[in-house]
Design a protein around this nucleic acid. Structure first.
Lengths: 160, 160
DNA sequence: CTCAAAATCACCCTTTCGGGTGACGCGCGA
DNA sequence: TCGCGCGTCACCCGAAAGGGTGATTTTGAG
């Protein structure tokens, strides 16, 4: 990566040098301008890099991680929902998105990390069926990938 | 890689074009040398800062201060944690699984529902690299699919 | 300095996903 | 009885993901 940067830096330098050369033919004068520009550019490049380094150098994440010591009451979760027992999917959003019960099942299975084939076996249907459900689901969720679908569904409170 | 080459090529071209343009203006309007210098300075400052940021992106020195653990009864939800702003991944489990910081980054991106390509662009690396990281990650998590990896990581308290 | 871990990238090959299309049956309400 | 939503299934094809191997570079610890 750095090599690439250096390479292009040198390339740029060579190009600029070429430009200078060409210009030289026409404007024998005005050399100071080029030199001036180049110097300024170099200077501020270095300055910029230094700034960048400085700004990120202090970006040290001081994380004081403490593992749970005692467990009292397991508080709910980030998502809203009062939630009684296991989990209650947001019916409103479910309906407003037009997601059917079967599709929700597929969604949960997907979130569980199962492949289409595994889901098919688990639900006693063909893999093609799972794929159709999944496709419709993705469409309704505006998701392009199953991971994205999971993410979106989670945000929408459809799954835990 | 090709994209990177093209990108840098275009960037270089644009920069040179800009320089030329500014020069031209300067030559035509015998005006402020300061503007020219300022523009060049600004341009290269931004470039430098960007470079600096890019070269040192995940400059984090993690200070792990483990507190003796008593019990750990993470029953219901993956990682309650409650309040506490962003989220602190379980460093202990992270280490015990041998997951590197970079791999954790990839994991988070995967959980975010991004494709390998998107992750590659977002982290300024090639898609192959992302795939390598992902592969190692799946191996360490004993996951066969990315959705499963997300699920397992969530259970392990590695991600929110 | 040397060594190892981490990160990066490439290539090949197989499997899995996802999109698109079309089709069939069932139950329910108009 | 018809239409419709839902669930079911199939096939094709391109894209994405995943497995395996090998390689280089960077960086930090000893």
């Amino acid at each position: 990566m750095k090599k690439t940067v250096i390479f292009y830096g040198l390339l740029g330098g060579v190009l600029i040098a070429l430009l200078k050369l060409v210009e030289f033919r026409f404007l024998v004068l005005e050399h100071s301008l080029e030199i001036y520009g180049g110097l300024v550019a170099l200077l501020f490049s270095v300055l910029g890099i230094w700034l960048g380094l400085k700004l990120t150098r202090t970006r040290e994440t001081v994380i004081v991680r403490e593992v749970p010591v005692l467990v009292e009451v397991q508080v709910p979760m980030p998502a809203p929902v009062s939630a009684a027992g296991p989990f209650a999917p947001n019916r409103a959003r479910l309906e407003q998105l037009g997601i059917t019960p079967r599709e929700l099942e597929i969604l949960e299975a997907i979130a569980g990390g199962f492949s289409n084939r595994e889901i098919a076996e688990r639900l006693f249907v063909s893999e093609n069926t799972v794929k159709t459900h999944a496709a419709r689901l993705f469409d309704k969720l505006s998701a392009k990938r199953r991971t994205q679908a999971v993410q979106l569904a989670k945000e929408a409170g459809l799954i835990p």
